[in-house]
Structure formats: C-alpha cells, structure tokens
C-alpha cells in the first residue's frame, strides 16, 4: 500500500474521485436508456457498457477507499454535492435523444481511455496496475462508440444532422473534462503523475480522426485556463438532479446492508 504525506494524499484522493465520479454518473445516466434505446440490440449493448462504467467506478472507489478509510458505497453515495468532482458533461441531460447520449458517451470514452493510458505510468503502483487493466476494457467502449458516431454520421441526412448537432451541443462541457482536480500540480511535482499539459491536444487529435472518418466537422475549443466547474465541486442543475436520483435509495437508510 502506498503512503503519501497529507497534502499529496488529498490530491491523490481528488484525482481518483474525479475519475470514479465521472464513471459513476455516466453509467447512471446511460442506464436510464435500459428498456427504451432505439433498437433492442443497442438497448442491451448500451446497458452492458453502462454496467462497465459502474464497475470501473467501483474499482476506483475501492482503491480510494483504502486512502479515505471508507467503503466504496459510502464514498459513491454518501457525499455532499460539492464533494463530487465529476465533470458536468457526464450528468448533462440527454433529453432522451439518442444522438445526445452517443455524443456524451463519445467525448467521455475518449477522455477516459487517454486518462487511463497515462495513469498506467503513475508511480503510485496500485493506481497504475488498475489503470492498465481498465485501458483494455476502455478500448471496447471507444471502439463501440466510434462505430456509432460513424453509423449515425453516414446514415441518413437526418441522422447526420442530429449527431453533428449533438456533438456541437456537448463540445463546451467536453472541454470542461480537462479541468484538473485540486492538488493535481502537487501530484506532478511529487512525480506521482506525469504532466498532462498536452492531454487536450492528444484527445482532440483522436476525436478529430473520428470526425474525419465520419465525414463531419465539429469544433471543440479548449476551455479558458481559469474556467472552473465540476472538478472544483461547482455543478450544474442537471448534476444536482442526477445526484438526488442517485442518492434517493441510499438516503432512505444509509446503514442498510446490500
């Protein structure tokens, strides 16, 4: 088990929470499609991938739980709204528009893959080992969603318009995924993670490749350096609604055994 000094430990906790919270809320939002996705096969596949997101969240909560001395469930469900560090794209309401769900998933999946790849080199060995495993699973999500974007963009004129519109709609929130959680610089200084100053460019390159493949033009701009949002615990109304829904059962009886 790795040990950190207090400030570094808090920074490491923040980093893990930012990843796990992204995954938990994305999986939760996507699971809303269970039973009502446009075709049966997409319904089953999207639900299965949502389960993966929650499994990934769970694995990271377990890891951070060892630092926080708390159970994965309590960390996942028991915090106050501003202690959640997910980016608000994961909770942005899709209005049950399939193109929105695909756009949200597309941006997030590519970011998650990149993040796991980079954290596989972390000097925090437990985190690196976990991320190495998750990279392999995240590839499944990325391949799946790339093909969906391609499918919609090359389907009918209407499906192309819809997916392009959705990708534009989610572009702003996507850029906010790159806000770093509090203390991230400390992790770089301490050599726990490598500098990530080029992560937006790396991500942008990958999503642009897919836009080219699908024959659509989407502009995603980098956020302004001081823009604060979900990673700082400052959340949208969509997040609050999602959190209320997520915590509803847990709050009935936080001590219940599942």
């Amino acid at each position: 088990m790795s040990t950190f000094n207090e400030a570094t430990q808090q920074a490491a906790i923040n980093l893990c929470l930012s990843i796990a919270d992204d995954k938990l809320f994305l999986g939760h939002r996507n699971s809303n499609w269970t039973g009502i996705a446009p075709i049966l096969e997409a319904d089953i596949a999207f639900s299965s991938l949502a389960q993966d997101d929650i499994a990934h969240a769970s694995a990271i909560y377990e890891l951070v739980g060892s630092l926080m001395g708390d159970s994965a469930d309590d960390i996942a469900y028991g915090r106050k709204p501003d202690a959640y560090l997910c980016a608000d794209i994961v909770t942005k309401d899709d209005g049950f528009d399939w193109a929105n769900a695909i756009a949200r998933q597309f941006y997030c999946n590519h970011f998650d893959l990149l993040r796991f790849e980079r954290l596989s080199n972390s000097s925090w060995s437990e985190l690196a080992a976990l991320c190495k495993r998750l990279v392999v699973e995240q590839h499944i999500q990325v391949n799946h969603i790339n093909d969906w974007v391609m499918q919609l963009a090359t389907g009918t004129t209407e499906s192309k318009e819809k997916i392009a519109h959705a990708l534009n709609e989610y572009a702003n929130e996507a850029s906010m995924m790159f806000e770093t959680p509090y203390g991230f610089e400390l992790l770089i200084e301490d050599g726990i993670v490598n500098s990530s100053s080029d992560i937006f460019d790396a991500w942008h390159k990958r999503v642009s490749e897919q836009f080219n493949r699908a024959g659509i033009e989407i502009e995603v701009k980098q956020r302004s350096v001081d823009a604060q949002g979900g990673r700082s615990g400052i959340h949208s109304e969509d997040f609050n609604e999602s959190l209320r829904e997520l915590q509803a059962v847990y709050r009935e009886d936080p001590t219940a055994a599942w």
């Binding site: 096969e41 299965s48 991938l49 499918q151």
Partner: peptide, 13 residues
C-alpha cells in the same frame, strides 16, 4: 445494419 455493428452488439449481447 452491418457487420461492424453486428460485432459491437454481439460482444455485449
């Protein structure tokens, strides 16, 4: 609709 999506769906299904 095509082999690509069939493979994606089969993997999950």
């Amino acid at each position: 609709p095509n082999a690509l999506m069939a493979a994606n769906f089969a993997r999950e299904h």
